Simulated assay, not measured.
Amino acid sequence: MAFIDYYKILGIDKSASEKDIKSAYRKLARQYHPDLNPNDTESNKKFQQINEANEVLSDPEKRKKYDKYGENWQHGEEYEKYSQQQQAQGGQQYRGFGGGGGQGFENYEDFGGSGFSDFFEQMFGGAGGRSSGRQAKYRGQDYNAELKLTLKDVSETHKQTLAVNGKNIRITIPAGVENGQIIKIAGHGGPGVNGGPAGDLYITFLVAADPNFKRDGANLYTTAKLDLYTAVLGGEVTIDTLSGKVKIKVKPETQNNSTIRLKGKGLPVYKHEGHSGDLLVTYDIQMPVNLTEKQKELFTELSKSK
């Protein structure tokens, strides 16, 4: 059982700050993301290792346990409790775990070269074990994954297939999810040990910035160009929305940078079916250029009539 050095996977040292961990993870996740490396088994494997390392090191409590117990940080405290019970009964504590030496699990070879899982199997119910014969059950590790979406993607509830740890998982993406929002898919993490429950899958949604719309919760903001003549006299203008183009009436004497609100033309409100935000449109009035002599005369005449 090879020891997995999460610090080495992220290319950082043990003194790295939370900011260093976050920065290293984002850089490597982008480099090895499955979307950028389709059908590349090694890159997918590396991506899974990066997520696993980040899941542990970005959590202060998990990182503390990992620094103390190594790869098997999830079971270290259970061993210490068992070891203390053995000492109370006159037993001898094994080297390489617990105690004040802080050696962690790096000395698992002290058990004859077997991995930590093998050792626990012996201690808690395997052949030659000293317990009642029942094997201890351990919950599987949680997985982390990222899913890139567009603003159009989050405008309606839909399904997508996500590749996680070599398996395709079809998930439902609720309309209105936010950038950076995380959802949990129970039971789709690592397998449990000795019949224990599987871990969970945590998916982070990355919603890309849109060139036409700015988002604020469920509301959207956009700019519409309006010619001077329509702004002065009134008329109609065609506006782009996420659901298509719509025509709206323009009031006479509309001012530059004035804003109108299109009710319900924003994004759906997350997990509130039937409720949507608004689209706020700011008019950008375009001044005419390359006027003809006749047009200039008309503007001159108009200015004299003030």
Rank of each mutant, 00 (worst) to 15 (best):
H188W: 14
D40W: 08
K271E: 10
V56F: 00
F120N: 01
E301K: 13
P60W: 03
L10V: 06
G176T: 00
Q93L: 02
L201N: 01
Q135W: 12
F105A: 04
E301W: 06
K251L: 15
L28Y: 00
Y6C: 11
L279G: 04
A24F: 03
K27H: 12
T150S: 15
K265A: 14
E253L: 14
V164D: 02
P268H: 05
D20L: 10
T157G: 08
P60M: 06
G100F: 09
N179F: 05
Q103K: 02
A24C: 03
Y143Q: 01
G98E: 04
G90H: 05
Q49P: 02
E178G: 09
A163D: 13
A16M: 05
K45I: 08
I203Y: 08
R130I: 13
R134P: 03
I9W: 08
I248Y: 07
T172A: 10
N219C: 08
L267F: 07
G217Y: 12
S83G: 04
I50F: 13
P252Q: 15
Y79V: 10
A29W: 03
E52G: 12
L36S: 11
G90T: 11
A16Y: 10
Q49R: 04
Q85M: 14
I9G: 06
R134M: 10
L302C: 04
G234W: 05
M1Y: 12
I21S: 10
S15G: 12
N290K: 14
S114V: 11
S117E: 12
Q86W: 04
D20C: 09
L262T: 03
N179G: 06
K137P: 02
L220Y: 07
A209R: 09
N44K: 15
E71M: 13
N179L: 10
E109M: 07
S276F: 12
G91T: 03
A53P: 05
G264W: 00
V164W: 01
Y108R: 01
D35W: 02
Y66N: 06
E121D: 15
F119W: 09
Y283N: 02
S276C: 03
R170D: 13
G176H: 02
A53T: 03
G96D: 00
Q135V: 10
Q295D: 12
G125F: 11
S258H: 01
V154M: 04
F205Q: 02
G274V: 02
V164P: 03
K8W: 00
G91Q: 08
V232H: 12
D210Q: 05
Q86G: 05
T41F: 14
K14R: 04
S58N: 10
A136Y: 08
E61R: 08
G102Q: 00
N72I: 02
